[in-house]
Design a protein around this nucleic acid. Structure first.
Lengths: 339, 339
DNA sequence: TTTTAGCACTCTAACCGTTAGAGTGCTAAA
DNA sequence: TTTAGCACTCTAACGGTTAGAGTGCTAAAA
C-alpha cells in the first residue's frame, strides 16, 4: 500500500514530531534524516501522504504533522522491529520489584511509580479483576454492637476488608462458624463464581434448616460487593507538564480523576487479545480521552491474566520507547506474582 | 492599629480580588462598595495600607492587590463575624454522611469528595494518627508457605492489613494463639503505646520461656509498621483549573502528588490549638506550598482528636465561604464516628 | 518517467509605534 | 479633612510591516 520510500518519510516525520512538537518541513526531513532526495521530492511525497490521510497541515504554509492514522501506521510498523528496552530502566525496575514481598497492591504501586518516573507519562495499574480472583480465605470479626468486619484474602495476594452492617446480633463464635462454613464451601473459587453460587443458594435458602448458613450467605453477599477494581495512578504531574495540553489541562485532570472512565475503557481493551495494546487518540471510544494515547499490557499469574498496567500520554507519545517499557513492566509483575 | 474605615477599605479590596483576580482600583471600590467617599480619599487610604504592607501594586499605575499580610488581616477580622454556612452544602453533606455505616476510610472519602465539589478547591483528609488510634483486635492468618497476613482493627473503625514475611514456619493454630496473646495484652492500647511496649518486651525476650510469644512480638512489630497515615485527596482538577497557577501547574501537581510534604506540614499544624486553622501563602513553612493557602480542622471522637480535613487553594481563596465549610465538615465527621 | 531547481505565493510570529483607558500621586480649593 | 482637577505613567490592544519558513507548481534535467 505504501512504498518503502513513503514509509520512511512518514516515519521520519512522526519521529521528528514526537521528538519536538513543531510541524515538520520538507527541508528539515532531507537534512536530518539524510535521504538522497531533494526537498522538492520530499514535498511531493508528503503531499501524497497528506492525501492518504497520514499527515496534515496546521495551515497552508507550515510543515506537516502526523494524524492519528499516521501514528497508527508508525506504531504498526514498529512491531516488525526488535524492541530495545532501556537498560537503565530494566535494572531499576528489577531492583525495585525484587525486594518486595508484600501484597500485590504495594507491588503495583512500586511498579507504576518507577514506570512513571522513567517514561514521563501517567501510569495506571488495575490490581485485579474479580472474575479471575480466587478466594484463599474469608474471616469475619465482630466489631461493636451490630457491625461485622469481613476480611477477604485471595490467592493472588490481595487483602480486602469491609465493614458490614449486621442488624442481627452475632457472637464471635457464630462468626467463626460462618467463616469456617464459607471457607470450606468457597475456598479456591473465583469471586464471580462465589457470587453466582450465592444467588443460587439464596433461592434454596428456605429449605435450609441451619439458620446460621442463611445468615452467612447474607453477610457474604454483602462482603463480596467491594468496588471490583481500584485504579492505581502515578505520574499525574508528568502529564500535566507537557506542552501538548497547555489549554485543556482541567478536562484531562477531571477525566483521570474520575477513575471510572478509565476503568471502563480498560475493561473493553483487556478483553481483546494478548500482548501490548496501543490505542491512539481518536481511536479511543471515550470522548474525554480522544486527545490521549494509551499503551497497556496485562500481567499474569501462570497463564491466567489478572490485571493490567499501562501508560497514558499525548498522542505524540514516544511509542518506540514506551511500548517495550510497558511490556517489560507487565512481564516483571507477572514474574513476581508467579514465583 | 487600623481605623475602622481603613479596615473596611482593606476588606473591600480583598473581597473584590477574591471574587475576581484583577487589581482593584480606587474608583471601583467607591462604586462597588458604596463608601460615602471619593476615589481620591480611597486612594489616600490605599496608599496608607500599602505602606503598612497590607496591599501591593503590580506596577505603578495599576490597582492594588492584597499581600499575604492583607489576607491574614482579612481572615482574622472574619473570625469576629458569625460564620454563615451554605445551607445547600450543609444539606448535601448531611445526606451523604448519614447513609454511611462502613469504615472511616469510606466516610472520609465521601466527605472530601463532597467538600471538593462544593468548595472548588483541593480537599485532603488524614485518616488517623497512630498516636491516638487504639487497637480493637489483631488477627494473623497463614498465607502460603512463609507469609502471614496481619489484620488490624481499631476502635475508630480503621481496618488495616499487611502481608508479613515470616521465615519461620507457623501453623494457623500457632497464629491463633499468637493473635489471642496479642489481643489480651494490647487490646485498647494506642498503636504508639503498643510499639513502645514491644520494644521493652524485646529486651526481656531472652528471659521468656514461651517461644511463641517472642515470635508474636517479632510479627507484631512488623505488622504495626504500616505507613502511619495515608492522605486522602479529592478535587485535584478543581485547583488545576484556576487561573492563579497558569504557569506553575506542574510544580504544584508534583508537590501534591508527593503526599509526604503535605503530611509533614499537617503534622506540624495539627499539633497546635483547636478549631479551624488557616495558613496563608508565605506563612507556609514548605517552599513548595508558599503560593497556596490551607484551611484545616481536626475531627474528634468524643474529645480525642483523631485526624484532620482541610482545603488547599490559592492564597486568593474565598475564606469567608471555605472556613465555615471546613468547620462543618470536621464537625459532621466527628458526629458520625462518635455515634 | 522520475527527480530537481527555481520561483511565486502564503501564512505566521515577531517587532514596533501608536493609542485608549485605567489608575495613580500631587496640589490647591472647599 | 476631604475632594476636585490635572498631569503623569503604565498596560493591553490594535494595526501595519517584515523576515522567514514552507509550500505548490512548472519547466528543465536525469
Amino acid at each position: 500500500m505504501l512504498s518503502e520510500r513513503n514509509r520512511k518519510v512518514l516515519c521520519a516525520v512522526v519521529q521528528s514530531y514526537i521528538n519536538k512538537p513543531d510541524p515538520v518541513g520538507s527541508r528539515f526531513v532531507t537534512k536530518k534524516y539524510a535521504f538522497n532526495l531533494s526537498p522538492a521530492t520530499i514535498r511531493n511525497i508528503m503531499a501524497d501522504l497528506e492525501e492518504m490521510g497520514f499527515l496534515s497541515q496546521p495551515h497552508t504554509s507550515a510543515g506537516r504533522i502526523p494524524t492519528d492514522k499516521g501514528y497508527r501506521f508508525y506504531v504498526d510498523s514498529l512491531c516488525r522491529e526488535k524492541p530495545t528496552v532501556d537498560a537503565k530502566f530494566s535494572n531499576i525496575l528489577k531492583s525495585k520489584l525484587e525486594s518486595i514481598k508484600s501484597d500485590i497492591y504495594t507491588l503495583l504501586k512500586e511498579a507504576t511509580e518507577t514506570l512513571a518516573a522513567m517514561s514521563h507519562y501517567l501510569v495506571f495499574a488495575v490490581p485485579l479483576k474479580t472474575d479471575s480472583t480466587t478466594l484463599n480465605r474469608i474471616q469475619l470479626f465482630r466489631y461493636r454492637n451490630k457491625q461485622t468486619v469481613a476480611v477477604l484474602l485471595t490467592n493472588e495476594g490481595l487483602v480486602r476488608s469491609k465493614m458490614l452492617d449486621t442488624n442481627f446480633g452475632l457472637s464471635q463464635k457464630d462468626l467463626n462458624r460462618i467463616s469456617d462454613y464459607l471457607n470450606s464451601e468457597f475456598s479456591g473459587c473465583t469471586i464471580d463464581e462465589i457470587r453466582s453460587a450465592l444467588i443460587k443458594q439464596m433461592s434454596k435458602e428456605k429449605a435450609l434448616c441451619d439458620i446460621l448458613i442463611s445468615k452467612a450467605i447474607a453477610i457474604c453477599k454483602e462482603a463480596l460487593f467491594f468496588p471490583s477494581t481500584d485504579l492505581i495512578v502515578s505520574g499525574f504531574s508528568e502529564l500535566i507538564g507537557l506542552p501538548d495540553f497547555s489549554g485543556r489541562i482541567k478536562e484531562i485532570a477531571k477525566a483521570i480523576e474520575d477513575k471510572h472512565t478509565i476503568l471502563k475503557l480498560l475493561d473493553r481493551l483487556s478483553a481483546s487479545t494478548d500482548g501490548v495494546k496501543v490505542v491512539i487518540g481518536s481511536e479511543n471510544p471515550m470522548e474525554e480521552l480522544k486527545k490521549l494515547s494509551i499503551v497497556m499490557a496485562t500481567y499474569k499469574q501462570g497463564d491466567r491474566s489478572l490485571g493490567s498496567v499501562g501508560v497514558i500520554g499525548p498522542t505524540r507519545m514516544d511509542y518506540s520507547k514506551t511500548i517495550p517499557m510497558v511490556e517489560l513492566t507487565a512481564k516483571s509483575i507477572s514474574a513476581v506474582i508467579s514465583r
